[in-house]
Nucleic acid binder design. Structure first.
Ligand code: MN
Ligand code: MN
Ligand code: ZN
Ligand code: ZN
Lengths: 140, 140
DNA sequence: TTCCTTATTGCAGTTAACTGCAATAAGGAT
DNA sequence: ATCCTTATTGCAGTTAACTGCAATAAGGAA
């Protein structure tokens, strides 16, 4: 019916079950304009699924990350955020003010390839957080 | 007296106060053979500083990270770890089994330089965590 | 030394993330 | 349609990380 059908089918084909909880959370992530925290996902998802628990939100988001449909954002503050895996990119995060800048994955492609070849690791191809100071916060 | 004097002097020169808590924690980090969690630091530090609280450990580790004397390790599990800033390196972390591989910073130097020039960010030059699957866990 | 300013700590309480286990329900088989 | 297996969820409780505020003490000034 709605927009997240292709993603749920992808899960079913891989042997996972499609639950209302997963559908709703995928729907929300799919329409998000920004990184969403578990609390934000829970808040929105509760509207259409009143019985939903935060535990399930945490587990579903982690599940989506493990299966590659979503990505975890590390902002350096022990608070998570997630987004649907789409356009491959990374972030520069200011350790002072939290400002985030998006970096297209292609800029890091050479490094990723090199690391994979030299270590045998299969790297998730996007969404690394690079930490530092933004231009504004450098004046301290 | 002991090994962490150069680090504490560095802090004093920058206008920070040297407390027994900071000295002990720096000493522990300086002698650590691996990444240490706040709990591990607390446990060890409590021996020589019985009154120490976990809160102070969390704040001191964060403080050392902010001032560049220590580095935060993101293992992808919302549990922190720290190490003294020494040899510049990064890590590949297996999302399945947690295995970590060390990568010398020099391999990422070109990318870092490029990102700094194109964005104006001043990046912390080490200790990025790249996530993926280790060779063993790829057989699933 | 003693005093003074204020950075740092400890305390108490909060929020975020995680875990074990029993109840539920997805989806394949009959 | 009904049953069955077991993946997934909700519940209750735990652990890790964080925060506000008053008490303490580092280190510069007198
Ligand atoms: Mn992103
Ligand atoms: Mn390291
Ligand atoms: Zn900034
Ligand atoms: Zn592995």
């Amino acid at each position: 019916m709605s927009c997240e059908v292709n993603l749920t089918n992808q899960l079913r084909e891989r042997g996972f079950r499609i639950t209302p909880q997963r559908s709703v959370i995928l729907h929300i992530l799919g329409h998000a304009k920004a990184h969403l925290t578990p609390a934000e996902v829970y808040q929105q998802a509760s509207i259409s699924l009143p019985g939903l628990t935060e535990t399930t939100v945490y587990r579903t988001l982690e599940f989506l990350a493990q299966t590659g449909l979503a990505q975890t954002v590390f902002n350096g503050k022990s608070k998570y955020a997630y987004e649907i895996s789409g356009y491959a990119h990374h972030h520069l995060v200011c350790r002072q003010c939290g400002t985030e800048v998006e970096i297209p994955h292609v800029k890091a492609e050479a490094l990723f390839k090199e690391l994979q070849e030299s270590t045998g690791f299969q790297l998730m191809q996007n969404h690394i957080s690079f930490f530092g100071l933004c231009p504004v916060c450098q004046e301290d």
